Amino acid sequence: MQLETYISDLLYRYDCVTVPGLGAFLTNRVSAKVHKTTHTFYPPKKVLSFNEQLQNNDGLLANYISEVEKTPYSKAAEKISEQVKSIKSFLVEGETIKFENIGELILNADGNIVFDPSFHINYLTDSFGFSHFMSSDITREIYKDTVEAIEETAPIAFTPEKRSNNNWLKYAATAVIILGLAGLSAAFLYNNSIEDHNQLAQEKANEQLDAKVQEATFIISNPLPAATLSIKKQSGNYHIVAGAFRIEANSDKKVNQLRAKGYKARKIGANRYGLHEVVYASFETRAEAQSELYKVRREHNRDAWLLIKKLD
């Protein structure tokens, strides 16, 4: 049973999802924010947390599992209880429990569960489709500062003159100077505007060119035939345990028995209690291991269980 999948589904619709016997996953809505240093804009989201004290069964999770898997409520509650027992046993052994798209659980020195939330998914449906983005600094008052600098370098002084028949020439000259300075300022601002426009246009053209290159399809007229290799990799951190033996010879015997039945059995070393562990197989993902575990329990050993352990 993919417990984290059901919890993740419910977190989109509810602010509290309780796992009976383990604790509750809570969500708290936070507003959009801007990072002052990186100038990154983040949309509104739900922040995840975990409360170990909330363990009473409110029926939400069991009802949802019962509905999805088309099983009775009591059966769904029993599956949750078995999963919680397995999780707690791993936590006691010092293992880290990973809930995909939710976070990680680990037991601290005081015996309390510590939760490290995941930030890969935003459970706030109002922000669906939104993602963070960065924006460059906005420089203001550039034009004003430029005009003030020009006025400081080319001051205009007006002195009283005696009225004569040539006064209109003096006024005309003054007007020409004023218009010339105004035209110079306008031309300077216009040139800056044109340069900014050209730069934006060039950046847009480069982006379009990059997109075309990335979308280009190259066709080879005489392609070489594809070579298909089937390699079974016996690795991974998810192991289906067949048993643990104090005498190593007994573990070797168990491996031979399982391999005779078609399983890819092997020994993965001794655990913290000195018992030699034998597994049916190891897998890269929890989903693959869980699927094989159901098959093993149904066809061979009802006591088989899933171990999450990173091997050296």
Rank of each mutant, 00 (worst) to 15 (best):
K233Q: 14
L3A: 07
I219D: 10
G236W: 02
P44N: 09
E277P: 04
G269L: 02
A182M: 06
L22N: 01
A287Q: 15
I247F: 00
S66G: 09
V213L: 14
K233P: 14
I177Q: 06
S131Y: 07
Y6S: 04
N112I: 11
V279Y: 11
A173V: 11
S86L: 15
S185G: 09
L229Q: 15
F90R: 05
Y6T: 04
N301V: 02
E248A: 10
F41Q: 12
G243A: 01
L179W: 02
A249S: 15
A77M: 03
I177E: 05
E277I: 09
F130L: 15
A187D: 06
E104M: 13
E207K: 13
N271S: 03
Y190N: 02
T217K: 15
S135M: 11
D137L: 10
S8I: 00
L209D: 11
E207V: 10
D312L: 07
D126Q: 10
E78N: 11
G236E: 05
S81E: 11
Y280T: 00
T96I: 08
P223H: 07
R259A: 05
R272M: 10
Y143Q: 03
A157D: 07
T37G: 10
N301H: 09
V213I: 15
G274R: 02
S127P: 01
Q214I: 14
E52K: 09
F25S: 08
V47T: 11
I178N: 06
S251I: 00
K310G: 08
E141F: 10
I138L: 13
Y73F: 15
T285P: 01
H197Q: 12
N192G: 04
K212G: 02
D196A: 13
R302M: 04
A289T: 06
I142P: 01
W305F: 02
Y263H: 09
N101C: 09
K295Y: 04
A182L: 03
T5K: 14
E78K: 02
N101E: 10
R140Q: 14
K295F: 03
S8D: 04
L48D: 08
I178R: 03
L124C: 10
D9Y: 05
E203H: 12
K267N: 13
Y294I: 04
V213C: 07
Q53F: 09
F119R: 08
A186L: 04
L311Q: 07
A289M: 05
Q199E: 15
K70W: 00
